[in-house]
Amino acid sequence: MQRRRSFLATAAAAVATPAIARAQDVIRSAKASYRLVTLSRDLEQPWSIAFLPDGRLLITERPGRLRLFARGRLERAPVGGLPKVYARVQGGLLDVCLHPRFTENRTLYLSYAGEGEGGAATVVARAELAESGGLRGVRPIFEALPRASGGLHFGSRIAFDRAGLMYVTTGERFQMQRAQKLGDLGGKVVRLRDDGSVPPDNPYLGRDGARPEIFTYGHRNPQGIAMHPDTGRMWLIEHGPRGGDELNLLTAGANYGWPLATHGIDYNGATISDHKSLPGMKDPVRAWVPSISPCGLAFYTGDRFPGWKGSLFTGALSNHALFRIELQGERYVGEERLLVDRLPFIRDVRQGPDGLLYLVTYSDDGGLYRLEPA
C-alpha cells in the first residue's frame, strides 16, 4: 500500500497543474461538475497520448514528433530516434501505446503511416524508451499490406488485452472494398503477440487466402479501441462516411459489414448500400447519423468523477465535443455531450493515473487539457 501511495504521489507531481495552466469556470453536466484546465497549447496536430508509470505523458504529433510532458511542462526537444513517417493528409505519426510490462522492459509501440514501394500503409513499430529519453531498437513488427497511394484512412489505434495480446486497427485506405477481403489487411482489426507474431487461436489462422493476423473485418476507419475493465472484451469506434459512425463490440472472426451494410451515404449523396444490416454480419451497438467523427476511446474507472464511472468516452471531431457513452452490460443506454464548442477537434481522451481525464485537440496550435472535478 505504501508503494502504491508513493507511485500516485510521484504521478501526481509529474502532471501537477503548472503555472501556465488555466482553469475555466465550473461546467455542470448530468452527473458531474468539472473544470477544463489548459496544460499546453504548444502542440502541432497531436494525435495520441500515453502515460508513463511515473505520470509523465508521451504525446504524438502527426508530422512525426513524439513529445514529453513532464513536471507540468511540455519539454522543448522531441524524443529522439523515431522512424521516418509518411506525413501527408491523415498519414503521419499516430498512436503510442506502452507494453503491459513497461516497468520491466521499457517497451512501447508506435503506429504510423510508413512509405514503401506502391505507396503507404499503417505500420506498427516496437521500441525501447531509454532512460536518457530517446528511443532505441526501433523495429517495425507489422504492416497493413498492400500499400496504397494517397493519405486517407490509416486507422492506427493500438490496445492490449488481459492476455497481453495486441490489437491494431487499420483503415481501408479510402478503398472500401478492401475491408471485405480476407487476403488484405486494410479495414481490419488485427491481433498479434507483443513481438508481432500471430497468436495460435486467431480466427483465420490456417485458412487459405486469409491473412492470419486478422481478428475482425469489415471496418472503414477505426480510430478508437479500448478494453472493457470488467469483461475484458474489446470495444471499437470507427468513422462512417456521411453518417454511419459506429460503436462496435468485437467478436473474433466477425464481419462488421462495411461497405455492404452501413447507415451512411457517400459524401456526394450517393447510396453506398441499401442495407443497414445483413445476415451473418455484426450490427453496431450504436450508429450515429449524422456523423460525429469519433476519435479516441477510453473507459473511465477512476473515483474522481463517481457519476462517470463505467462510462465510455470518445472525442467527436465534427461535433466539437466530448461524448460520454453509458452502457448497461453490452447494451447502449444513452450518451451525453460534454465541452460542446469549448474545444475543437478532440483527437484522443485518456484517463490519467490521478483519476482525471486528459484530452488533446487536433490543430496546428493543438492543446493538452485536463478535466478536474469542481
Rank of each mutant, 00 (worst) to 15 (best):
I27R: 13
A13C: 07
C97I: 10
E44V: 12
V190Y: 09
P199E: 07
L192C: 04
P373R: 00
Q180N: 11
T38R: 08
M166K: 05
Y217R: 10
T301K: 14
K282N: 13
H153F: 11
A16I: 03
A148N: 12
T301S: 14
S40E: 07
A261E: 05
L165S: 13
Y204C: 03
D274L: 08
G151T: 09
K282W: 11
G164W: 05
G355F: 09
L98W: 03
L58P: 05
V26M: 03
R173S: 04
P140R: 07
Q351L: 13
A13P: 13
L110M: 05
E44T: 10
R71K: 12
Y34W: 07
G280T: 07
P146I: 05
R370F: 03
Y112F: 10
T10I: 14
A321W: 12
A23V: 02
G240C: 05
Y369W: 14
A298R: 14
A77D: 14
G366N: 15
T361E: 13
L68F: 06
R233C: 05
H153W: 07
G133Q: 02
F7L: 02
L297W: 13
R337H: 13
T17E: 09
Y112C: 00
P353V: 07
E75S: 01
Y369C: 03
R62M: 12
T251K: 15
W235H: 11
V349H: 14
A32N: 00
V289F: 01
P199M: 08
G171N: 09
G171P: 03
V198T: 01
E44D: 13
D266P: 01
G116N: 07
L312G: 15
P199R: 04
T17S: 12
A130L: 14
L52G: 02
K84W: 00
